[in-house]
Design a protein around this nucleic acid. Sequence first.
DNA 1: CCTTAGTCCTGCATGC
DNA 2: TGCATGCAGGACTAAG
Length: 269
Amino acid sequence: MPELPEVETVVRELKSCEGDMIVSAKVYWHRSVIGAVKTFEKKLGGQKILTIRRRGKYICLELGDGSILTVHLRMTGKLVFEPNAKDQMYIRVSLKLKKSGELHFVDVRKFGKLKLWPEQASLLPELGPEPLDENTVFNALSSLTSKRPIKSILLDQKVLAGIGNIYADEALHMAGLHPLYPGHRLQKKKVQLLSSCIPTILKRSIQNMGTTLSDYRTTKNIGGENQKVLQVYGQTGRECRKCSSMIRRIVVGGRSTHFCSRCQRSPRI
DNA sequence: CCTTAGTCCTGCATGC
DNA sequence: TGCATGCAGGACTAAG
């Protein structure tokens, strides 16, 4: 599933479309678009793409009239220029670009969403800060008084924007923290450690072009390589690469959670 | 304030 | 082989 590193990889590729123009937009599955589909198609036609940026897990296209198109890939969404035969079946939205060709939003499970935000709208106001800087992460985590499990806190986009299930598990393993540890009971030293692990884990994955477990691909239909260095996510039943203990799987806040019971000690109750 | 369950979806793994 | 069942999950919403 695309999280911050995967979205960042896609956005870096898409940067080549800055300055291009959206000739026309066509929606094939209306629920992939938030808001009125006719307005969406009409307002996108003829728009110049000024900048393409990432915010959390959102791809943000700043358009000529000041409006902003956001794309959230959710589970299986991807943006591709040349869809293969299988992709063709799952094209939900297509954007015809003047110079770059046709950009297709492909999404098997239809969870992904596109939204055109009107001019001057406050964009994505509920998102927390970006988690790529150690000090920023420390500030976001140290101001917490929540009793929720640290895993749930990391997945909360209002706390930090962009971390998903894979990197939450990987960062907690690197920091040696049990996913059920209550946020308010973390000592300052543990928060500091976790705050350095999160950017490290995310930046490494960006270098590896993201994690491809099933659907994630870049706009050029290239998979990432970061799945090769995952320590716990999807490793249930295998040996921990650090200590050889067995990787276990539990459910935290409805999400499957992977951890090493030796490296990540259970909190004292 | 908090947690849990339901919703959206489809492919794939499992079991008989 | 074929059919039924259940699972996966990000973000949102509703209920308790």
